[in-house]
Nucleic acid binder design. Structure first.
Lengths: 362, 362
DNA sequence: AGCGTTCACGGGATCGCTCCCAGAAAGGGG
DNA sequence: CCCCTTTCTGGGAGCGATCCCGTGAACGCT
């Protein structure tokens, strides 16, 4: 393999200086059209690609973005990553992955992120479902490190993107109401999570808007996972026939799977005896029996919006350095602090609706 | 935020030179015990973390590992990534993500990888299910770039790790035979994939070992996805009762889902009328109805083995540079070119076996 | 013609590290 | 006691970019 070409080689071949080549590479305006064309041609011919490493050292800024995610969230990251990389591939930034498990977190949580940043490798951070880490990330953000969270669990003061859980839940319950149901149960998630709260609020609002008084007997509390859905469902099935629900909105698909199992054991037919709707649109949901009607989270779009937001922060940061005090800067479009994306209702068989279509949540 | 400390600051504080600090950081032997301890203490006190960027530029070697994966494989990468990061977190290496979609591939396939390498960012490459990229990766590997493939689709001349598909298929079919089945159908994948071939061979061998003559009527060809499983199943159900299969081994879980749907439509009860086994252990398989017996791929371990192999290659490369001609090097353990990991059979309800246990494939 | 501006471009200094050679200090053998 | 090793350490020379000051040419204006 021939020795790699450096900027110096390109400069020599194009008959210009390093500085000019650098200007061409970084798309700076003050280069003559012809010169630029010539340099670009040489770059093309030589297959030259500037060293990110050297550029990072010299420029003090890097072209790497750190993606932080707890390992256990990996299974649900596929779509998010797709969205992120689709945008990122059009830029000169690259993605660096940082994962950690629960041990790491409990042991020396602060260290992990700090060391990560201390390497000066990344220009910004994209944190997925950071959980316990979010406080620290917020702190970093306040210190000027560009950070964007993809989260659905807490109110943040950092830039973040999330799905509109309340509207999604509203649409799901409204759908059940339109199908004629009046006694609609809800299995909510743990109260310490914001999603649980939001989805519950959506449920309540949908009922109220249809003049249905919420019934405390029909509201159970689970922990997001199948077993809790199972036991909550059994409790509901044990209610006397006149108050037993005819429909159920589980606040996660996982819990809905538990409901499905309980229903099968008790001979409760879904959707005939019980219309069921979940939330999340996990992969298995299309394949369970019957296929689960659920609220789809726009993961792909969330990934896209998150990285766009971060890229915007990065761009602003760069400008600040160069055009400090530039009046144009002030009029620059404001970068949104939070982006909430609409969910959509995926209608399958478990709710008893005949057709299988997708309905926008708002 | 205080200005970041550099190696120079540490040197000054410890009363030594940059060179010595560098030696300590890189764990070189030629440093006095006391000096080393002193330097380490200062590093600790200052929370100093060396700049990977500068080290990369100066040393010519980097501490980044590129992970290459086509976007559409993301959903199945969760466990692999877990395995990789678990090992990687103990080293000073970081993971950089490179994904690309089909367009990228068909348009300028060569460019992508070349540009990737040309940035000189990564010390080695870990490629997941590279598909069309594998030729090029092999080439790179021959040019001296450390490359490890995680693949199940082709015979490679590069280092790679994969699951033992043939043994997995053998175990699956053997399981069905032990349950008393003699007429066992198989839906294989597209012939251009090595997995299809291997799983098919495993199927045939299991039949032969049980003195069952394979019946061409019972062997269908699908394309890995649910719809093809559906149509293949219908074709099998249309066979006259005396030659109709009592069991079916689908070479992917996805196709098994299609089989499940066909069975439901035709009133064929699984597992009573048809015992079903899939392959891959996709996430939905535990939740389909009935839960699918399948062959589990050791993704977590594959990730671990792959990264260990790459790390070993990297270490060897580094040694080569330093101890050129060292006799120890010659007698050094030869690094295995390929690693094949055992699969395991996950017994659930769809095969008709009472208990739900996991059986090692070999 | 003289002067100030703008436009392109050159090249020295620099980023934070590793490499490596040279030299000091400490022992070992004749 | 001198010389030769061995063990440690110091510091100059890069690595490949960016930054930025400085310069020469071309142009417009008085």
């Amino acid at each position: 393999m021939a020795k790699k070409a450096t900027i110096e080689d390109i400069a020599r071949l194009a008959g210009v200086s390093r500085g000019t080549v650098s200007r061409v590479i970084n798309q700076r305006p003050d280069v003559d059209r012809e010169t630029r064309a010539r340099v670009l041609r040489v770059i093309e011919e030589q297959g030259y690609v500037p060293s990110l490493t050297a550029a990072g050292l010299a420029g003090g800024r890097n072209r790497l973005i750190g993606m932080v995610a707890p390992v256990f969230t990996w299974p649900i990251l596929g779509e998010l990553v797709r969205g992120i990389t689709e945008i990122l591939n059009r830029t000169s930034y690259e993605l660096v992955l940082y994962t950690f498990n629960d041990e790491d977190l409990t042991r020396n949580r602060r260290d992990i992120i700090n060391r990560l940043l201390a390497t000066q490798l990344t220009a910004g951070l994209l944190a997925m479902y950071p959980g316990q880490l979010s406080d620290q990330l917020t702190e970093l953000s306040q210190q000027g490190v560009p950070v964007v969270l993809v989260d659905d669990q807490r109110e943040q003061t950092t830039h973040w993107v999330r799905a509109d859980d309340a509207a999604g839940a509203y649409a799901a319950v409204q759908h059940l109401i339109k199908l004629g149901h009046r006694r609609i149960a809800h299995i909510q998630g743990p109260s310490e999570y914001l999603v649980s709260h939001d989805r519950h609020q959506g449920y309540l609002r949908a009922l109220r808007d249809a003049n249905i008084t919420p019934d405390a007997d029909l509201i159970q509390q689970g922990d997001f996972l199948p077993p809790s859905g199972y036991s909550c469902a059994l409790r509901l099935f044990d209610l006397s026939p006149e108050i037993r629900p005819t429909a159920l909105f589980a606040s996660t698909d996982q819990m809905a799977y538990g409901v499905l199992r309980a229903a099968e054991e008790r001979g409760v037919s879904v959707p005939r005896d019980l219309a069921l709707v979940g939330f999340d649109d996990d992969a298995p949901s299309a394949h369970v029996h019957p296929p689960l009607t659920t609220v789809h989270q726009p993961s792909f779009e969330m990934g896209q919006e998150a990285i766009k937001l971060l890229l915007a922060l990065l761009a602003r940061q760069r400008d600040d350095g160069l055009d400090f005090g530039n009046p144009l800067n002030g009029s620059q479009t404001e970068i949104p602090l939070r982006i909430v994306l609409p969910t959509s209702l995926v209608v399958r068989a478990s709710c008893g609706a005949a057709n299988s279509i997708t309905i926008q949540a708002n």
